[in-house]
Write a protein that binds this DNA or RNA. Sequence first.
DNA 1: TTATAAAGGACAAAAATGGTCCTAAAGGTT
DNA 2: AACCTTTAGGACCATTTTTGTCCTTTATAA
Lengths: 136, 136
Amino acid sequence: MMELTRKGEYAIRGIIYLAQQPPGKMSLISEIADAAEVPQTFLAKIFQSFAKLGIVNSFRGTGGGFTLGRPASRITLREVVEAVEGPIMPNRCLMRGAECDRVDMCLVHPVWRKVQSQILQVLESVTIEDLAKKKV
Amino acid sequence: MMELTRKGEYAIRGIIYLAQQPPGKMSLISEIADAAEVPQTFLAKIFQSFAKLGIVNSFRGTGGGFTLGRPASRITLREVVEAVEGPIMPNRCLMRGAECDRVDMCLVHPVWRKVQSQILQVLESVTIEDLAKKKV
DNA sequence: TTATAAAGGACAAAAATGGTCCTAAAGGTT
DNA sequence: AACCTTTAGGACCATTTTTGTCCTTTATAA
């Protein structure tokens, strides 16, 4: 459980590749998919999600492609993961506030809330810039 | 993502009910399922997993049923969740040690490792006794 | 106007989830 | 011994989610 899906993994790989390119350079989805070893059409969907959220800029037509929507230092791992996997919600009930009618579960809720905040804290503290650093 | 499945939810509900019974009292799976509002046959499978791990004791035949395998204070939420959902592994690669060949992913691994340890820390700090306390 | 490249929608195979059902085995009861 | 009760275990199945593919449309540049 609590496993990152392929989609999430691909998303991270793709954005890291983009962050490693020279600033302003346009990258084709085919190029990114190739470099990140991700199925191209699948990655295209992922980058559509990124584009909608402004994580990347997309340009159509000749000379088009993708660039980072913000400096890599201002894109957190949380944003990237949530962009494709949806919000991080360890327990379903978390999202519905006080709607939970089961008395015993309500003692469990604070625990999942804690789990959630711990995860978010870690993922928010890491930027794509951190992850894009090439090995020395 | 990172969502607890129904199986995990049912497991928690079931074990909490058991922990709320008088010590030594035998509880039938039908009784637990009824009280926890969980499909009986499904809960039976869950309790089989518990029994294998010693989280509960099971007894067959007339007068049989389930009792806690240990005091509720010595059963952690982590054990209960992992019993039915498997180990908590945010990233697939975590489990295979250094087998990951992707250079960029290797910078991501420590992050997931951190996420994992944070989750475990929370889940290990909570016992079923904590969760079984009835509201005042 | 044509080539290029992303956007968006429809579709589909495979895997995981969320169960059910049946038989077997174990343990009491008569 | 025969019988009833209760869990164990395996087979099975429907639904949902994941992991994609493919095709058409739209925007843009040459």
